[in-house]
Design a protein around this nucleic acid. Sequence first.
RNA 1: GCACCCGUAGUGAAAUGGAUAUCACACCAGUCUUCGAAACUGUUAUUCUAGGUUCGAAUCCUAGCGGGUGCACCA
Length: 599
Amino acid sequence: MNKAITEAILKSVEDVNLLDFLSGKNLLDRPGDLSHGDYSTNVAMILAPKLGVKPVELAKQISEKLQSAVSEGSLSGVKKVDVAGPGFINFYLTEVVGFELMKEILDKTNGGDNYGKSNLHAGKKMIYEYTDPNPFKQFHIGHLMSNAIGESLARLGEWSGGNVKRYCYQGDVGRHVAFTFYGFDLLKNEEGVEWPSDSMPLSDKVAFLGKIYAKGATHFKDHSEDESIVQEINKKIYDKSDSELNALYDLGKKWSMEHFEEIYKVLGTKFNEYFFESDSSVVGLGEVQKGLKNGIFEESEGAVIFKGENYGLNTRVFINKFGLPTYEAKEIGLALLKYNKDPYDISYTITANEQDNVLAVSYKAIEQIYPEIEKKNFLLSHGMLRLTTGKMSSRTGDVITGESMLHDMTEMALEKMKDREIEEEERKEIAEQIAVAAIKYTILRQTIGKDIIFDPQKSLSFEGDSGPYLQYSCVRAKSILEKAQKQGVSTIVENINLEDLNNSNSPKICQLDWAGGKLEKMLVRFPEVLLRAETEHAPHYVGQYLLDVASEFNSFYANTQIVVEGDVLTPYKVLLTKAVLTVLTNGLNVLGIKVPSRM
RNA sequence: GCACCCGUAGUGAAAUGGAUAUCACACCAGUCUUCGAAACUGUUAUUCUAGGUUCGAAUCCUAGCGGGUGCACCA
């Protein structure tokens, strides 16, 4: 459709020089305001200065030519063309085209569960690395943010035809692990605390890990003279030279991983592969040592560094003076491990933007060693979930764990559902889905790069611009469809005839002056919204759009009775409801949000 | 100090260089005997400052003011 309109626009311009100027430009827009038509073009405004005429005048001339093309029937599908505002030329599609587009949403092959899919990245291998919590440390709400964003970007990749793989990279070695065992030694000596047995409940074991880490980190703050002790533990963890420590380490790591897996299950993420710093550090160390010989890195004050200043970046340490690889070196190792695991076309790393500067140095180093891999790697950094009290710090205990947030939100959802007659088990499951929706939507409704200031007191919303609002709209649509089915309303698309409907005395469908007209026009834009969200890596376009659709549907619901016995329009209204449900469900799926059957 | 990011109603956000700057919360006034009120209808209020580019600027450029993050052995 838009190809035909673009051609018609070019045809009506005529002047060869102007056509040359227009070539390659995107001439067709989707007006934000639905009353401005289905498509619009700004050619007149671009060309007017070149011709020395007023934009509106030129727009009138071009629009007249286009209108006569419509009258002659050479621009089929367009009902009318007019000029508006400062010189926009707007195109309005016919009811026939509108009806065809509506049918597409419900079509069994292209529509339904598949409606919105594209083949933008068909056949491409796409990697998404996100969440990245560290074993032995807490899974906090920052990880929740990375997970919500990463999961939805991965799903956008899938919806655009990509062959997607989800990776999770975890810091199982390093200072935080050393602090954990340093803290354990302290508590063992001071209070006789013992290492829990593997048969204890997971939540207790995880709580224990949190306790000893906090002890180690806070104690070290006032006892920096223990630096050598911490360093020694750190080294033992790296080279696995202490069998007693190894046994405890393996248990602790296992508990952490099991705990994370529980959370992923609730959040709806299934990783294809897990990478660890204990592996990337070995590979990274080797690469940096090789690079040192090749002159990519240099020695300085006993450490191995990369001179970032040569590229407008900071200088960073890759191997510290104890001979251990740093985060920067591990990134090199990780890049290699990921690529060798399964060579890909595109790889995205999703992390908080506080790491932008450091990662830029690592990536610059990778570019020197493996330019062909670096070309395929992209960093998608997001803002931070911060508290009203400032930055979260696990050292001071000023963190909110992902688990506690999920728990609190679930409790709130249960409170709202207390009057519903639903079995205990299902009720719990639904409440959890609502909690996840509330959290994810809050994160995904805004540009991923911006911080979210989270006030634990005010908490997250269940109404208005929220995930549960979208879920509620779906549940409402479902219940209407149930009623229609009970009354035997036929919802077979083929049985609906546009002419019959528009010949009746009822308002004409697929036109804006009908109550559901806006809804119809919005629904058919869903695939374009997904395309835009994917190309710009911006899931918030989806959230924003779904809110508009849900809001319009709720208005429609409020002022139109959908199921009316003996009404000619009822089958179509029911189908429209079905289309709304399809779009909302698919859109929420992209955001990683489930739709409960009731709530 | 240097680098990067950001300043939009009271609050939190949105806006491929386009049309009357959109949405939610909050405030105030209404709507449940109807297909689910986690909803709907109505009301009030917004682009940090100064220049510039453009037919057209919240958006691009310059300067200033304000905030965030990062800057050598944590990740």
